[in-house]
């Protein structure tokens, strides 16, 4: 059933990461991603890996779920690390036909694998511990300085909010329309690509019609509730930084220092 799909992968629990200010979490994620790409030796990489492992443990989300999110990109990891394995320069350790493996290659492939895995893990730890609404909220507030550049930050955030609200509704509707057309003998499972694309018309047309009707009604409802854009708007939810947010920032700074030191001295 499509209606069981939840957007994002929010996993409710009361771990430390769940309670962090979402703005801090977004900043931390950006920080860690930058760090991941600024590791130039194994020691620095080790520091990052530790940081990522800590975030996975602190998220209080079953490791099984993390592994599940890895499953989707396991092929990407394998291919990129294999490519790196064979594209190293220097003395070959092992050679067969046109393939040669060098120490350099092995190093590179491990780098790549660890980096991608860290990237996925740390991004997942954000989406697992932050509800989509909190995420939108954090992004809106973080983007606010951009409005100086005439970027319509409120409008972007409003669009994200509405999208979050309506994606499940539209998925459910798609489900319903598909069933209704199947009841009239629509065949969506067989035939070649062109036939299948054509078979989607009876689903897509009503879906668009309904999306437009919804948009029209929603706009009216928003007007009834005195919506006049971002100006003069207040928010019920206020985000407050607390001690744990500063501690989290501190941890990131320590990690940055660690990585820099490792990069320079080891």
């Amino acid at each position: 059933m499509m209606r069981d799909i939840t957007l994002g992968q929010y996993y409710p629990s009361n771990g430390v990461l769940h309670r962090l200010d979402p703005r801090i979490k977004v900043l931390l994620l950006i920080g860690v991603i930058v760090l991941i790409f600024c590791t130039f030796n194994f020691y620095a990489l080790g520091v990052v890996a530790l940081l990522v492992a800590a975030s996975v443990i602190l998220s209080k989300v079953p490791v099984k779920l993390y592994l599940k999110s890895m499953k989707a990109i396991i092929l990407v990891i394998l291919i990129t690390s294999l490519l790196n394995l064979f594209y190293g320069t220097g003395e070959p350790i092992f050679q067969w036909w046109i393939f040669k493996v060098t120490a350099d290659g092995i190093k590179n492939s491990i780098y790549v694998a660890v980096r991608i895995i860290s990237l996925v893990m740390v991004s997942s730890s954000l989406t697992f511990t932050t509800s989509p609404t909190d995420l939108t909220d954090a992004l809106e507030r973080l983007m606010k300085p951009l409005s100086v550049l005439k970027i319509k930050t409120h409008e972007i955030a409003m669009m994200m909010t509405i999208a979050l609200r309506f994606v499940p509704t539209l998925l459910e509707e798609t489900d319903k329309i598909m069933s209704a057309q199947k009841a009239r003998g629509a065949d969506m499972e067989s035939g070649n690509l062109i036939r299948r694309i054509k078979a989607l018309i009876p689903v897509l047309v009503p879906l668009f019609v309904s999306a437009f009707r919804r948009a029209y009604e929603l706009a009216m409802a928003m007007e009834c509730r005195c919506y006049q854009g971002g100006e003069g708007r207040t928010r019920m939810k206020q985000l407050h930084m607390s001690a744990r947010d500063f501690v989290a920032l501190g941890v990131l700074l320590v990690a940055v220092a660690g990585v820099v030191l490792c990069n320079i001295f080891l």
């Binding site: 919804r214 509730r225 207040t234």
Partner: peptide, 29 residues
């Protein structure tokens, strides 16, 4: 209040949706 309940709720959390109106009016948090 309009006919179709699905098409007049803006936010994906109940309390945030209810807050939408007063937020638009600039009421204090």
């Amino acid at each position: 209040v309009l006919q179709n309940p699905d098409n007049q709720l803006v936010a994906s959390i109940v309390e945030e949706d209810v807050a939408f109106g007063p937020e638009n009016l600039g009421v204090a948090p």
